[in-house]
Lab assay of single mutants.
Amino acid sequence: TEEYEYTDEQQAREAAREWREKGYTVTIEEHNGRWRVKTG
């Protein structure tokens, strides 16, 4: 599992979409105004 943090929701969603296209399972969670994208 890798985790990436973004301050911008749009960036987080874009990144998540790219990971999904590569076949990863992706979770996005908002935490204190930051967006965490977890792949695994």
Rank of each mutant, 00 (worst) to 15 (best):
T1W: 15
T1S: 12
T1K: 10
T1P: 13
T1C: 09
T1Y: 14
E2M: 15
E2T: 14
E2Q: 14
E2H: 14
E3W: 15
E3A: 10
E3K: 06
E3G: 08
E3M: 14
E3I: 15
E3V: 15
E3P: 07
Y4I: 08
Y4H: 08
Y4T: 07
Y4F: 13
Y4K: 07
Y4G: 05
E5Y: 15
E5H: 08
E5W: 15
E5S: 07
Y6S: 02
Y6H: 03
Y6T: 03
Y6M: 02
Y6V: 02
T7L: 13
T7S: 12
T7W: 12
T7R: 08
T7I: 11
T7N: 12
T7Y: 11
D8R: 04
D8G: 04
E9G: 04
E9S: 04
E9A: 07
E9T: 02
E9P: 06
Q10I: 11
Q10R: 11
Q11E: 14
A12M: 03
A12R: 00
A12N: 00
R13I: 13
R13S: 06
R13N: 10
R13M: 13
R13Q: 12
R13V: 10
E14K: 10
E14Q: 11
E14A: 12
E14M: 08
E14T: 09
A15D: 03
A15K: 10
A15L: 05
A15P: 00
A15G: 04
A15Q: 07
A15F: 07
A16K: 02
A16Y: 07
A16E: 04
A16T: 03
A16W: 05
A16P: 00
A16M: 08
R17S: 08
R17E: 11
R17I: 08
R17V: 07
E18W: 14
E18G: 09
E18L: 14
W19C: 03
W19G: 02
W19Q: 04
W19L: 14
W19M: 08
R20H: 08
R20F: 10
E21G: 06
E21H: 07
E21S: 10
K22Q: 09
K22I: 04
K22V: 03
K22F: 04
G23D: 02
G23H: 02
G23F: 02
Y24A: 04
Y24C: 03
Y24Q: 04
Y24E: 03
Y24K: 04
Y24L: 07
T25V: 12
T25R: 09
T25Q: 11
T25P: 06
T25K: 10
T25L: 11
T25W: 14
V26T: 06
V26S: 03
V26L: 02
T27V: 12
T27P: 00
T27Y: 11
T27A: 07
T27Q: 08
T27D: 06
T27M: 08
I28E: 02
I28F: 04
I28H: 01
E29A: 07
E29N: 06
E30W: 14
E30L: 12
E30Y: 15
H31N: 09
H31E: 10
N32S: 07
N32G: 09
N32V: 03
N32W: 04
N32Q: 08
N32I: 03
N32A: 07
N32E: 11
G33N: 05
G33K: 04
G33A: 03
G33W: 02
G33T: 02
G33V: 01
R34P: 01
R34F: 13
R34D: 03
R34S: 09
R34H: 09
R34N: 08
W35H: 01
W35T: 00
W35N: 00
W35Y: 07
W35M: 01
W35K: 00
R36M: 14
R36Y: 15
R36V: 15
R36T: 15
R36Q: 11
R36I: 15
V37K: 00
V37P: 01
V37I: 11
V37L: 09
K38F: 10
K38M: 10
K38L: 12
K38W: 09
K38Y: 11
K38E: 06
T39A: 11
T39V: 15
G40C: 06
G40Y: 15
G40M: 15
G40F: 15
G40L: 14
